[in-house]
Design a protein around this nucleic acid. Sequence first.
DNA 1: CTGAAAGCGCTTACAG
DNA 2: CTGAAAGCGCTTACAG
Lengths: 362, 362
Amino acid sequence: MTDASRERAVGRRRPRQSDIARVAGVSQAAVSLILRGTPSGMALARETRQRVLDAAEELGYVPDPVATRLASARNAMLGLYTFSTTFPTDVAHSYYPVLAGVEEEAAAQGQDLILFTGSARAAARAQDPAAVRRVRVADGCLFFGRHVPEEPIRRLVEDGFPFVYIGRRDEPGVPYVGADYVPASAQVVARLVAAGHRKIRYLREHDQAPASADREEGVLKGAREAGLDTRGLVAPTDGADADALLGGWLAEGVTAVVVEQTDTGAALAGLGAAVGRAGLDCPGDLSLAVLGAATGTRGRAPGGGAAFSGFDVPMREMGRDAVRLLLELIAGSPGAATRRLLPCEPVEGGTIAAPRPPKKHT
Amino acid sequence: MTDASRERAVGRRRPRQSDIARVAGVSQAAVSLILRGTPSGMALARETRQRVLDAAEELGYVPDPVATRLASARNAMLGLYTFSTTFPTDVAHSYYPVLAGVEEEAAAQGQDLILFTGSARAAARAQDPAAVRRVRVADGCLFFGRHVPEEPIRRLVEDGFPFVYIGRRDEPGVPYVGADYVPASAQVVARLVAAGHRKIRYLREHDQAPASADREEGVLKGAREAGLDTRGLVAPTDGADADALLGGWLAEGVTAVVVEQTDTGAALAGLGAAVGRAGLDCPGDLSLAVLGAATGTRGRAPGGGAAFSGFDVPMREMGRDAVRLLLELIAGSPGAATRRLLPCEPVEGGTIAAPRPPKKHT
DNA sequence: CTGAAAGCGCTTACAG
DNA sequence: CTGAAAGCGCTTACAG
């Protein structure tokens, strides 16, 4: 068989190890050993190795990740499963920087990413274990999203499949990388108090997620530490009732509002609009603070060009660190804790000022 | 061996078809047939099938996706190779909707996406053929990006690897899904002419990409068809010299400017700023048209709140169609043409008006 | 130092 | 109608 006819015989089909073996005149197993650079592979005759390497190059060989994985080795592929579309229609979607961080670190670590298209449909009937189960084609998987099917995840835990949540989770034993909202939120309240505010309100969305629970906990903690009255402090909203809420608060003498910023941005958008309609100046008439905008995607205060005061969520870093943790889990050697909370950077911003009328400082 | 001890022997390990086979007293292959509900599976004795189904249920069997994919010779994984980071830092990056379309269609077709991260960067700084070759782990691959290494791609063509470009390409034989810029651009000129403009300029970026070439071709075509003088019509810019260009044009009596919108948005941004600095009203003093903003991410005209007149690039649809075409290629049965141009939807917008002073219409 | 064999968990022809 | 066999493309012991 000539080289030419041999190549033709291989045809359109992807080259595999046995093709290389035939060309190089060695066994298929030897090809595997040599290509992977294992000790036993390196021990083979230098000239043999070169022949194999050349043949692989010439044929354009690339290992089949599925076969590799089945034969129980590593893929160098990390899964990314978002419980919603990965590329949301809303371009400014708040969790985007997380994905950028994931991609960045994966690239740095030489890992490719498999996007498990959580077919909007699958999310709806998300209890379908098969949908989640296919993440096994990767060495490990990152999960991301507020609404998470519990049952399929539990199975993954049982099977010992390595995965990491992006965002804190309540379920015991589940590794995650989240943001440390409690102290960050408490500190925002402390700043308001330091500026002279005593009548504060916290506007949060109607949403049950660990991130929301943590922010509220932090706000309450901050209020208590400052000796503030926490009755009526927390006000859930969907954004539509902002005018009424704002009106009531002004009448009560509220001078500062803390707002939760989440995916939808509904609470902040609603309040911002209400402030505008009421013709209020921020921070002149009312101080505002926002809990958790993504770094670099912060909004602007109503009317002014000032950035919101509050803190940033280290989304990019969360993505990066989640990749690192996942890789540690895959290697079987989690270096540090497997449940991590990253600090949120305070943002000075320009929406906090002393309350009007200015209180005389003692 | 009792049933109990057998079950214990199976232990923590996930149940597989051979376990079911043992319990139900049939062959492993029969289990596969029955579980998959194939014709041959359905043909088996009703009672036998029930026994297998029961055993599967009892053991909590779920098929291993890795093995399934290996055996069925399809990975159900499509590559997505972007010649830059997939998740760009700039959230408003213009090609984002394409990715959304890709994800959407992939999900609908039950395909997962492999993001080639590390390799992308390596390819960029090395023209490293090995980097691009890695895409062969997928069943096929989508390529996307302006700056594309040619050599590795040629290699893929030779090997018969299925792939599709998103965006028109000049290389013969390369399948693509692009936008039909020529007629869309010509039509924009026609609209300007219909509004009474005779002195028009086309501002394009310094960039050699098929998309840019097509737009220019369309503008020239439109101008010729309207009997306009095409000398001096086209002006390349990097955005920095906008003031000078604008000044010159006004002196010449130019009443309308067509601008190319690309990734960077430099041309449009530069001109918009210049118009603002000159204190001009748009479209009162100058009509503007933009060639190719992504649907839903259009900018706003300087000063006013009006959307730019021009056309939309059907980015989302390009992404979707590229997935469809790729799947056809993988199946070996391209239904329609393998080089497709999708129509661009005209955008009425609010930046085209009759030139001032109004010309008397004959 | 080298090669042949078994196995990962499935699917799919192909004999009885 | 049913079952045993081969094969998907790899890895990893294990003989020579």
